[in-house]
Design a protein around this nucleic acid. Structure first.
Lengths: 203, 203, 203, 203
DNA sequence: AATGAATGAGATTTCATTCAT
DNA sequence: GATGAATGAAATCTCATTCAT
């Protein structure tokens, strides 16, 4: 007798995963509790039992995801050569969310939607921790003389996060939108590192 | 006798501007017709009179904005040296929307929200024209031997768009979220060009 | 062609009358918006269109009723002999609400349900104005030496209001509860005046 | 080691006391099972274990309270002089509920809320027993020629009950509503007796 | 006797939209 | 062009109640 893989998850986990996926796709307002419970195959009051209300469900998802990302980044040795460090960050982030890429997509989307969630201001700080980790790694590389000083660590990290967020989104859209079909995200980590580390103009 | 600047706009324009601003901030689902008419200081049926319904209002906004961007990009000579070309694109885009930055923010947001708008598939193509212009410019530079070949034009343009979108978002959030206060978007066009054209690692 | 008397009322009035009647019978929490719109024969959103929400509908009803009562009481000359004054108050209150006795019942009920309505504290003051009018009338009679001084104006007015409230309630319950069937409220105003003015003990 | 006084009550008693207090304040519909179990510090199913359902819990409370009142009244000798009898009733009722005044408040409230409880008709009779005791005492006094005959026993008892109910309510509201702060219910039993026995007009 | 988890039904409220004028 | 009034459908959330243990 075949069983759905979902049967392995508790009610709480089912809600979490359905919520992350839907929030990532449709946004906070575009996702209804009914959407979530239908996808999760649970009853409506269970959402309120476990998460209180829609807002708290959303913040729980966001906090959980960003904490996971922060944990992964913190495991990387900040003294590594810069291009190695960069590559490690990309790879470890990718691996961590390999079995649940919706998490990455939601994080990306969250960063681009300043007022979609009514209480954004209460949770925006979770977003700054991984960003700060990257910024201080770049500052360190600058101090060690590894990288040029005409680019600020802040701009660099914003550019990297923007790029990754957009790539995640493109990947997410790939299946359904013809124009993104040709993009292959799987081989591009090396490309990203090269782009950001070495630039594109021939000297 | 002083008059509000809004008095110079027609009802149709008032609705358009209010809609763009709100869609940019709150997203499609997070914006209600009532929000729009309150901000625009018009009555509800006017939206339906001029735009048909909410979906058509949204697509009108998106199409208008992307067409403006495309027009601007098409005016740039694609034979220019790559770093000059890059800088021109950034500057002309910025200037075009200088008096209505919400337009930029909405375009950025739109690109990151694959399923927020129920008929995304009907309008996604407007998004690809400016992207294609950039991709073909890069390809041209590659063909001319200006830039290295280890970076694909596609990745490069995705990275650039992702970066710009994120910067626009950060700018948008700046006033309200402490963590973005220190970022100064006005001086960064040169930095962006340098980052993408020359890379960061010292050779 | 027969028409329901309700057809003469506007939507707003229909809602008001249905709400007063139901709040009087079932209380604030026991009355649902659906109950109200069914009785009023209007659609649900009309309640929100005209009154904002359930709480505001309730406070609107209460304020309207108590203001009517206050207006009636203010028309009575406070210099009248006390038993005449008393009788006038009872009669004018009764007449004012003759065609809409539910209003009286709701006022009575409201006075006995300190926390039934979540924002009681915001509207309790409407209740004190007619009470104060009575208290000061009694004080005046006391000053003029018309009435004994072993009863405080406050207790007297509380007793009178309690009595009237209970009589209104009994009247309200009469039709449905056997035990109140024999009570005839119509002949009792004189009795009430006598009871309060002359007491019951033979001297 | 200090312990909360509540620890002395059984689960059943905890539920009863919490229920009476909440029903008195918020009414039947305004009180939720969750309110009750939170105040009682027990779990939800316990309510159903001990009382069956919310309706039965309510009727249990009402019956218990009115039976206590009836028992108290039955102990008073109906042959006493009327003003003595009256005073005895007031004092003994007050003493009986001295340590649990919420019981008095609930009885008062119950009498003013004809349809708040859906099965009022099933329990309204408990209310008539103490009322009947008073009515027949008055009738007896009338027969003995103690009191005037221009006031019916029924009106008299309604007035007394209305007065007492209102005073109980005022007392209940005292702490929270400024307008009742000055009322002192503790010294007023004598006043009540005088008011009802002797009236207020000087002869 | 007691509990954490679960549920169907229904509560309040808001939505996009339309009608009559 | 423009509006106040109105609506069906669906949103979030809470309710009394029960199940499995």
């Amino acid at each position: 007798m075949e069983r759905d893989i979902k049967d392995n998850f508790s009610v709480r986990e089912k809600i979490y995963r359905a919520a992350v996926e839907l929030f990532a796709r449709k946004g906070y307002s575009g996702t209804t509790i009914r959407n979530i419970v239908q996808k999760a195959e649970v009853t409506q009051p269970m959402v309120y039992y476990y998460y209180g209300n829609k807002e708290q469900l959303f913040t729980s998802c966001i906090k959980e995801l960003y904490n996971q990302l922060t944990t992964v980044y913190q495991k990387i040795d900040p003294e590594l050569p810069f291009d190695i460090l960069l590559k490690k960050m990309l790879i470890s982030g990718k691996e961590k969310f390999a079995d649940f890429p919706e998490g990455l997509f939601l994080m990306a989307r969250f960063a681009y939607s300043p007022d979609e969630f009514p209480r954004m201001i209460d949770i925006i700080h979770v977003f700054s921790t991984p960003l700060d980790l990257l910024i201080s790694a770049i500052q360190k590389a600058k101090n060690k003389g590894e990288i040029v000083d005409y680019v600020s660590p802040q701009l660099f990290s914003f550019a990297l996060f923007g790029t990754l967020g957009f790539l995640a989104t493109v990947h997410f859209m790939k299946d359904r939108f013809e124009i993104f079909k040709s993009m292959d995200i799987d081989v591009s980590i090396d490309e990203i590192v090269k782009l950001f580390a070495y630039g594109v103009l021939k000297k």
